[in-house]
Amino acid sequence: MFGTVSKEMEVQVSATEAWELYGTLLLSKLAEKELPNDIQKIDIIQGDGGEGTILKLTFPPGTISSYKEKFTKVDNEKRVKEAELIEGAYLDFGFTLYRVRFEVIEKNENSCITRSTIEYEVKEEAVANASMVTIELLLKTMVVAANYLTKNKK
């Protein structure tokens, strides 16, 4: 079974400015700092934020303990970043694919749309686990990013 979940929001900064946050590791560091009840720690296992970068995300007790994700696409022209789970979490529950995509879409020179999407594929025998997929953490990250960008507008 294949599925997607997506959310978007308008941010009152240029797409270029938003991508300076979304297209780098700064977004991960900001989420780690501003969402301590949701993300305990983010470790950079390998890389500098470009394709091939591997992060280990550790979550508070009582939730999915941790997982590793790998940046599979960082397209600075189209302003798209994708990461796929490579270890732990959803992969332990019958998912064969769990991909997160961040996009920054230019609306005009002073405003853009940020969109977060989760794409997943789950084995037929584990299809009930598809209900585990939630975009809540990505939405919280987008709100933190929007507040940061608006406050630090150039």
Rank of each mutant, 00 (worst) to 15 (best):
M1S: 08
T4S: 12
V5C: 13
V5M: 15
V5D: 12
K7I: 15
K7G: 13
E8G: 07
E8R: 09
E10N: 11
E10V: 15
V11Y: 12
Q12P: 03
Q12A: 14
V13D: 06
A15L: 09
E17W: 07
W19V: 10
W19Y: 05
Y22P: 00
Y22F: 13
G23V: 09
T24M: 07
L26R: 11
L26S: 02
L26D: 12
S28L: 10
E32W: 10
E32H: 08
E32Q: 12
K33T: 14
K33F: 08
K33A: 14
P36S: 09
D38K: 04
D38F: 08
I39H: 06
Q40F: 02
K41F: 04
K41L: 06
K41S: 07
I42H: 11
I42A: 04
I42R: 14
I42W: 12
I44T: 15
I44K: 06
I45Q: 15
I45G: 15
I45N: 15
I45P: 14
Q46H: 11
D48G: 03
D48Q: 12
D48L: 07
D48M: 08
G49Q: 13
G49K: 13
G52W: 03
I54G: 12
L55P: 03
K56Y: 01
K56L: 13
T58K: 13
P60W: 03
P60E: 07
P60D: 05
G62M: 08
I64S: 15
S65P: 09
S66T: 06
E69T: 04
K70D: 04
K70L: 06
F71K: 01
K73I: 10
K73A: 04
D75P: 02
E77W: 01
K78F: 02
K78Q: 13
K78I: 00
K81N: 02
E82Y: 09
E82G: 04
E82F: 05
E87C: 06
E87A: 06
G88M: 08
A89G: 06
Y90W: 14
Y90T: 03
L91T: 02
D92Q: 09
D92M: 08
D92V: 04
D92Y: 07
F93G: 01
F95M: 01
F95T: 00
Y98C: 02
R99N: 14
V100Y: 00
R101V: 08
F102Y: 09
E103R: 12
E103W: 04
V104E: 01
I105D: 05
K107W: 14
N108P: 06
N110H: 02
S111Q: 13
S111M: 14
S111V: 09
I113S: 10
I113W: 13
I113Q: 08
T114P: 03
R115P: 03
T117K: 08
I118T: 07
E119W: 04
E121C: 01
E121A: 01
K123W: 01
E124H: 05
A126K: 05
V127A: 11
A128Y: 00
A128P: 02
N129H: 13
N129A: 13
V133M: 07
V133F: 06
T134W: 00
T134G: 12
L137E: 10
L138C: 09
L138S: 11
L139D: 15
L139G: 11
L139S: 15
K140I: 01
M142C: 10
V143M: 10
V144K: 11
A146R: 06
A146G: 05
L149G: 01
T150H: 11
K151E: 14
K153C: 10
